[in-house]
Amino acid sequence: MQTNRRNTNKWYSSKYWLIALVSMASLTATAAVKVDKAAPNFQLTNSQGEQVSLADFSGKYVVLEWTNHQCPYVKKHYDSDNMQALQRKYTDQDVVWLSIISSAPGKQGHVSPDKAEQLSKSRNAAPSHILFDESGEIGKLYGAKTTPHMYIVDQQGTLRYAGAIDSIKSANPADIAKATNYVDASMASLAKGETIAKKLTPPYGCSIKYKS
């Protein structure tokens, strides 16, 4: 009887960890967006100082790209012109491309609007808008973990892809040619009305430098 009581106490203490764990898990579960569910709307300021919201682009495909120009994994895709080529390819097809910077002020990748414009010009980038998410609120709403982290929202506002830019997790530009580009593959499937083969992949890259 005595042993039982002791055991009960033991579980009693460990139990609270579990409760904390379950509640944390449910928080993250509700916070992270779900593929094939409505993409939550947001409003952010762009590099021109204008307010841009996801709902403005209803009826168009929208690609979200979390970025940080100092991150080696972002550099891998910009120095090789891989990311800019995708931006040009899809913005030409009337797809809206939103590059989002969630780096907090003082942290890696945080830039002024002017600097952002300048970076776009120097790198020959072609996003529809560069958006600033200094508070990290939208990044966390979307569960963005790394730079790059890619999302595709369809014309109906449904999230159709979330994850890595491509299939090879490395900082080596030589791997780009060998990898399957998930944004390209997903957009192609969507255009053909097919189901996306990999609609949720683990992103790779640098951790997003959130405020906290």
Binding site: Q70, C71, P72, Y73, Q108, A171, N172, C206, S207, K209
Partner: peptide, 10 residues
């Protein structure tokens, strides 16, 4: 390789 503190350098 990748070596990191908060920022990472490959």
């Amino acid at each position: 390789w990748l070596v990191c503190k908060e920022d990472c350098i490959p």
